[in-house]
Amino acid sequence: MEVILMIIFVTAFWVAVAKFGPILFSKAPQQDLVRCVCLLTAVCCWLFWLCCYLAQLNPLVGPKLNQNTIKIIARSWDNPISQG
């Protein structure tokens, strides 16, 4: 649930940047260019953040531990290991 809330919160932030960013530069001579730059900046930053955030949720490469190391870690953390 907190993953969804985080994605919604950050998405709302970047939507606000895209919507209200051009207002800061409303008197610029090239208003269309400024709007385009603000919009593209918000979209690229949001997409970069989303890719990094989702990649950390389910990493493709994880630690490779042998069986003895796993047992030592489990014993030190007081977790019973099922004998299988």
Rank of each mutant, 00 (worst) to 15 (best):
M1N: 14
E2M: 13
E2D: 15
E2Y: 15
E2N: 15
V3E: 15
I4T: 14
I4F: 13
L5Y: 14
M6Q: 08
M6H: 11
I8T: 03
I8P: 00
F9K: 10
F9L: 11
F9E: 11
V10T: 07
V10P: 03
T11C: 13
A12Q: 14
F13P: 11
F13H: 12
F13D: 08
V17W: 09
V17I: 10
K19P: 03
K19E: 05
F20P: 09
F20Q: 06
F20E: 08
F20I: 08
P22L: 05
P22N: 05
I23S: 09
L24N: 10
L24G: 11
L24E: 12
K27N: 13
K27W: 06
K27F: 06
P29I: 07
Q30M: 12
Q31C: 07
D32T: 02
D32A: 06
D32F: 04
L33T: 08
L33R: 04
L33H: 08
L33I: 06
V34W: 10
R35P: 06
R35Q: 02
C36F: 00
C36A: 00
V37K: 02
V37R: 02
V37Q: 04
L39D: 04
L40Q: 07
T41V: 05
T41D: 06
A42V: 01
V43Y: 00
C44N: 01
C45R: 04
W46Y: 05
L47D: 04
L47Y: 07
W49T: 01
L50V: 02
L50Y: 02
L50I: 00
C51M: 05
Y53Q: 02
Y53H: 03
Y53E: 00
L54E: 02
Q56N: 09
Q56K: 07
L57T: 05
N58K: 12
P59L: 12
P59K: 13
L60V: 13
V61W: 15
G62F: 03
G62E: 10
P63T: 13
L65H: 13
N66V: 11
N66S: 10
N66F: 10
Q67A: 08
N68F: 15
T69R: 14
T69I: 15
T69D: 13
I70F: 14
I70R: 03
K71N: 15
K71Q: 09
I72M: 05
I73K: 03
I73H: 05
I73M: 06
I73F: 11
I73P: 00
R75I: 06
S76A: 03
S76K: 04
W77H: 01
W77K: 00
D78T: 02
D78S: 08
P80L: 09
P80C: 02
P80M: 09
P80F: 09
I81Q: 01
S82C: 07
S82G: 14
Q83P: 00
Q83V: 08
G84N: 10
G84W: 00
